[in-house]
């Protein structure tokens, strides 16, 4: 340690050029997500969905082989029914709605909760970069990652469907499937702020995981009882067509509720980061 070198000095020259705080936060969050294995492995896990769907399609295309495969065949028939592009895209939408909530929650939990598990949150508080900029960067990085992975699996599903030569292709179907799958991911992302809030309040990983499981179970109950359109956490699933055509399952009130839930989650997360005592 050479103490004779240049040392900190009093004051900062007012004319000194500085980095935009928001861009600095975005850079930092991007570096963290790039270096970590959690988002990578989660993306790999998400990418298995088109492959699983493709496997079901192969089984359904060949009933003889399906029968010889026993339970897997029965399960495949139960889930998708017929082997064609509409069924495959339908499967993918539902997979994004259900799997997306879990996988997006994992990444959101990691992005927010790791700051407390690794005790790095305290390094982000007394900075010229505002806490709002840091939280916004975290949300943006999580959302970009989630939408990029969704696009990746949509591309993969196109490749898998083409490889196994599924019937029933059309450009209209492609457009509708794109909107359906991206819409499911988008609406699922709208539920993520509460996961971020729980990761922050709970200062770690377990509370947001518990929250995700709880909301998934409640969404099932709400859908079964016919109140799914009034329960924000059931909306991505209903949008995916899991309970029939989305136009019948959802109304304008559903989207408004989802939007309000999302806004409430964002606002609560920002408020917590601004105001809560940071003791870890």
């Amino acid at each position: 340690m050479n103490v004779t070198q240049e040392s900190p000095q009093t004051g900062n020259p007012p004319e000194e050029r500085s980095i935009n705080p928001f861009l600095a936060s975005l850079w930092a969050e991007t570096l963290k997500i790039r270096r970590s294995r959690v988002p990578l492995f989660t993306a790999i896990g998400f990418s298995l969905m088109p492959l699983a769907g493709g496997l079901f399609m192969i089984i359904l295309k060949d009933p003889e082989a399906a029968r010889s495969m026993g339970l897997i065949s029965a399960k495949a028939q139960l889930m998708v029914g017929v082997a064609d592009w509409p069924a495959y895209f339908n499967f993918m939408s539902q997979a994004v709605a259900a799997g997306g909530l879990i996988l997006f929650s994992i990444v959101t939990t990691w992005v927010f909760g790791r700051e407390f598990s690794d005790h790095t949150a305290k390094e982000m508080l007394a900075l010229p970069t505002s806490r709002e900029a840091i939280v916004t960067a975290k949300f943006i990085v999580t959302s970009v990652w989630a939408m990029a992975v969704t696009l990746l699996i949509f591309g993969l599903s196109l490749a898998v469907g083409t490889l196994i030569v599924l019937p029933g292709w059309s450009t209209v179907l492609l457009r509708s499937a794109f909107v359906g799958i991206l819409g499911c991911a988008f609406f699922t992302l709208g539920l993520i702020p509460f996961v971020a809030l729980l990761a922050s309040i709970g200062r770690g990983y377990l509370p947001p995981f518990g929250w995700t499981i709880l909301t998934m179970v409640l969404a099932q109950f709400a859908a079964i009882l016919g109140w799914g359109d009034w329960f924000p956490w059931a909306i991505p699933g209903l949008f995916s067509g899991v309970a029939g055509p989305r136009a019948e399952a959802l109304g304008t009130h559903s989207y408004v509720l989802l939007l309000l839930t999302s806004i409430a989650g964002f606002a609560a997360t920002y408020y917590w980061w601004r105001s809560a005592d940071q003791t870890r």
Binding site: S25, S36, H119, T120, K122
Partner: peptide
Amino acid sequence: VESPSAYPELSVRENLDIARRLHGKP
């Protein structure tokens, strides 16, 4: 503050680079 902490998956240089940028230093 209290025990030192750092992002374990990042190098020492990267950890400091994050701090530099968050302090707005180009």
